[in-house]
Design a protein around this nucleic acid. Structure first.
Length: 562
RNA sequence: UGACCAAUGGUGUAACGGCAGCACCACAGAUUUUGGUUCUGUUAGUCUAGGUUCGAAUCCUAGUUGGUCAACCA
């Protein structure tokens, strides 16, 4: 019994700073106690594990506080956005296990946004600027210097109104003029130095087609979209912190529902990159197969790699939410998926680097069926029969002619158990003319059959195997980290992240597997005993299964051996 | 350089002025027909300097370090 009269199991998990804000708001009955969040991706690329953190946060908060969470596409830039991305984003969110309450698009609000722009012009709080892009930039000067007002800043509002109307009607070419808010050209915050609200873009929009040729900027669309939807807590990443004064200015000036913008630190993962630009570059320059390459940190890549949605959610929960920059160790993600798959993955035996083993005293031509457990962590997974025979395949790694002291596997004169079968003893080896081992000859002890319970003999090592009379081949892709550096974003002078691409991030082998798997569905996860977790890739055909290695098992021998 | 934000073991993250805890990693041991899992343990931390206070990771001031912003991207 602890002092505060609550058992450890009941002890409340500490809140992250966003939950604290929300709980405070609920106590104070702000927004009538409602909680309404949203996940607001721009459909200009595939979602990555960093987005997964945001998705888990936003949808998780809504769940926790009995609120709602919208999916809203921030589609205000038709030159970069595509339906393909909209579809993939929806698929990814659902795969992660979340369902949005409403699906919206910033483009749903184009008319309302336009009306608000007119309102600002009428109130002399916005004007049409005909300066070039370069001059506008120059006018803003630098953050430590006052800005220079545009010569168009004080033009009559009727003039701005007329030009804005013409902009909308397509009477002016791209780049010829913009609508700017009239705020403060001397603000230390560059976003308050008369931010651009609308620009001309004669481009077809994936939803509104050619209805519009002027499009609102992020700052003029995001906050108002939040407001229209009744969002209470608008959660975004740290780089939008400097946008908050503008977000607040717009809600206040337009006198509309005012959600609270809260910023948190985005996820970074070691040995990979997370920026959309860089991921796009990896795809476009063919450094990977595509957005769903299992080496990519995209949700679709991670999914194809064999990660479960549960493991991603646990990961997102474990890394926490705070405001300091961070790089999470890849090992934590791997830990989360191992933990999940250990409970769920069916076991099977597979040989990645086979060598033939012959049992000299096993009767010629005889075979027998042995019983194997499908998942020792889950009794309901049942058992299966596997064939045992005189000749079997084992892992080349599991034999050493001259083993170091703590090697528990097969070596001349030494004994080892064949999993689910017998104890065998190595008698001799056969080599080819290059000295490579081609056959390992052993004898077995018929009294040591698994499960017979007739003997108490123990051996140090147990190895996996597949019958040479009854097996199948499969392609297995062994993935390693995509980059060799812990933080590839932080490239040294004269290098880019591309210089750190791991040349050995993919190794493909032809493996020997059990002839019949319990399920051969694409995405099915297996543990290849003693090796790791593997899942069936969509490239599989009826003739040939293709596996992706999700993650290897922890390997303490590898560490000892180093 | 100006404003804003941040700073706790190797990596993350707690503490709400009162015993610096948890997870991952690493290491050691126990169990094990997976060198897996599970269990036990060990190493290791409050950026610096002042101040407030009986008491500071926490509050204040200054500094240091890191990040963000100066697209008609989001």
């Amino acid at each position: 019994m602890s002092i505060n009269n609550s058992s450890p199991a009941e002890e409340k998990k500490s809140l992250n700073f966003i939950e604290e804000i929300i709980e405070n708001d609920i106590i104070n009955n702000k927004n009538d106690g409602r909680v309404h969040t949203r996940f607001p991706p721009e459909p200009n690329g595939y979602l990555h594990i960093g987005h997964a953190k945001s998705i888990c946060l936003n949808f998780g908060l809504a769940q926790k506080y009995n609120g709602k969470c919208n999916l809203r596409f921030d589609d205000t830039n038709p030159t970069k956005e595509e339906v393909e991305y909209v579809d993939s984003i929806k698929e990814d969110v659902q795969w992660l296990g979340f369902q949005w309450d409403d699906e919206f698009y910033a483009s749903d609000y184009f008319q309302q946004l336009y009306d608000w722009a007119i309102q600002l012009i009428n109130r002399n709080l916005a004007y049409i600027d005909e300066q070039t892009q370069e001059d506008i930039s120059k006018g803003r000067t630098a953050p430590n210097k006052p800005g220079i007002e545009s010569p168009y800043r004080n033009r009559p509002m009727e003039e701005s109104l007329k030009l804005f109307q013409e902009m909308k009607e397509g009477k002016h070419p791209d780049g010829s003029m913009v609508l700017r808010a009239k705020i403060d050209m001397n603000s230390p915050n560059m976003h308050m130095r008369d931010p651009i609200l609308y620009r001309i873009l004669h481009a077809e929009h994936h939803r509104t087609g050619n209805e519009w040729c002027i499009y609102p900027m992020y700052d003029f669309a995001h906050g108002q979209s939040d407001s229209i939807e009744g969002i209470t807590h608008s959660i975004c990443t740290l780089e939008f912190e400097v946008h908050r004064p503008l977000y607040d200015w717009l809600c206040k000036t337009l006198e509309i529902h005012h959600p609270q913008q809260i910023e948190f630190a985005r996820l970074n993962l070691s040995y990979t990159v997370m920026s959309k630009r860089k991921l796009l570059q990896l795809v476009q320059e063919n450094h990977v197969w595509g957005w769903d390459d299992p080496r990519m940190p995209t949700i679709s890549g991670i999914r194809r790699r064999g990660y479960s949605p549960e493991s991603i959610r646990v990961f997102a929960d474990t890394i926490g939410v705070a405001k300091r920059d961070n790089i999470i160790d890849l090992s934590l993600l791997e830990h989360c998926v191992r933990e999940d798959l250990n409970k769920k993955a069916l076991r099977t035996m597979a040989i990645l680097d086979p060598v033939k083993l012959i049992i000299n005293n096993y009767p010629e031509g005889e075979t027998e069926e042995l019983e194997a457990v499908n998942n020792p962590e889950d009794e309901n997974a049942g058992k299966r029969k596997i064939k045992f025979s005189k000749e079997i395949w084992i892992e080349r790694d599991d034999f050493m002619e001259n083993p170091p002291k703590k090697y528990f596997r097969l070596s001349p004169g030494n004994e080892v158990r064949l999993k689910y079968a017998y104890i065998i003893k190595c008698e001799s080896v056969v080599k080819d003319k290059n000295g490579n081992i081609t056959e390992i000859h052993c004898t077995y002890d018929p009294d040591t059959k698994s499960g017979s319970g007739t003997q108490q003999r123990r051996v140090k090592g147990t190895i996996h195997w597949v019958s040479a009379e009854d097996y199948r081949k499969a392609e297995v892709r062994l993935f390693d980290r995509l980059f060799t550096e812990y933080d590839p974003d932080n490239a040294e002078e004269g290098k880019t992240f591309l210089d750190y691409i791991n040349p050995d991030s993919l190794k493909t082998v032809e493996a020997i597997i059990e002839p019949k798997l319990i399920s051969e569905e694409v995405m099915q996860s297996y543990q290849f005993e003693r090796l790791g977790y593997f899942s069936i890739d969509k490239d599989s055909t009826d003739e040939k299964l293709v596996f992706n290695r999700t993650v290897s098992l922890r390997d303490s021998w590898k560490r000892i051996n180093k």
